[in-house]
């Protein structure tokens, strides 16, 4: 009889302790909810690279979790000098100033060069071909206007919780930006 009673009080005590700890847990979770929700934004955050910090090291092409990087080259047309000898398009010492593959910097031939009027040429990126290697960006930054630059393309990016490229970027160019303004463009905003 006494042992029964003892187990019963034991059980009651344990039950009470469990209930109390559950209450404490709920209180803690509620507190966390309050603290977090008061600061949270409904706007999602996405990754973007700051083109003014980027040194076009080439990591963007290789470190993305996607087979073909979500980072691609974009062109700020209003900044471009429409140079005939585009240092983003041509090898440093091209055999000839024409669109032959051996003259081009881009390993995939993703930049299209079209004649506009003498002596101006327009350079557009064929995005499906671009692998985001940044070779053209480097060339354009070195001797041109810097109108070619890299951006995370959000139609491709998976928005990883931590961007793998961000972890590998030597110039710490990656930041989280609000999804409502997902690009950090160079020059005047002339976007579609």
């Amino acid at each position: 009889m006494t042992t029964d009673k003892k187990t019963e009080t034991n059980l009651n005590r344990r039950q009470f302790l469990t209930n109390a700890s559950r209450g404490a847990c709920l209180l803690g979770l509620g507190g966390a909810l309050g603290a977090l929700a008061s600061r949270a934004k409904s706007d999602d955050m996405v990754w973007q690279l700051d083109p003014y910090k980027c040194i076009a090291c080439g990591n963007c092409a290789t470190y993305c979790v996607l087979e073909q990087s979500a980072v691609k080259c974009v062109h700020s047309y209003a900044m471009c000098g429409y140079c005939e000898l585009c240092t983003g398009f041509f090898e440093p010492e091209p055999p000839a100033l024409n669109t032959g593959a051996e003259n081009q910097l881009c390993p995939t031939g993703a930049i299209k060069r079209t004649y506009v009027e003498d002596p101006y040429y327009e350079y557009t990126i064929d995005e499906p071909l671009c692998i985001g290697c940044g070779k053209c960006v480097k060339g354009c930054n070195a001797f041109g206007n810097g109108s070619l630059f890299l951006q995370v393309r959000h139609d491709r990016c998976l928005n990883c919780n931590e961007c793998s490229i961000a972890a590998a970027c030597p110039s710490q160019a990656y930041t989280r930006v609000p999804a409502s303004q997902p690009y950090l463009l160079k020059g005047k905003d002339t976007t579609a």
Binding site: G81, Y82, C83, E117, E122, H154, P182, T191
Partner: peptide
């Protein structure tokens, strides 16, 4: 701007930089 962007005589229109949006909230 080592090379000032040209004013095209032929009135060539500059293409726009595309900015595909991320997944909607």
């Amino acid at each position: 701007e080592r090379f000032p962007p040209p004013d095209f005589e032929g009135g060539h229109e500059l293409p726009l930089t595309t900015v595909p949006a991320p997944r909607a909230d």
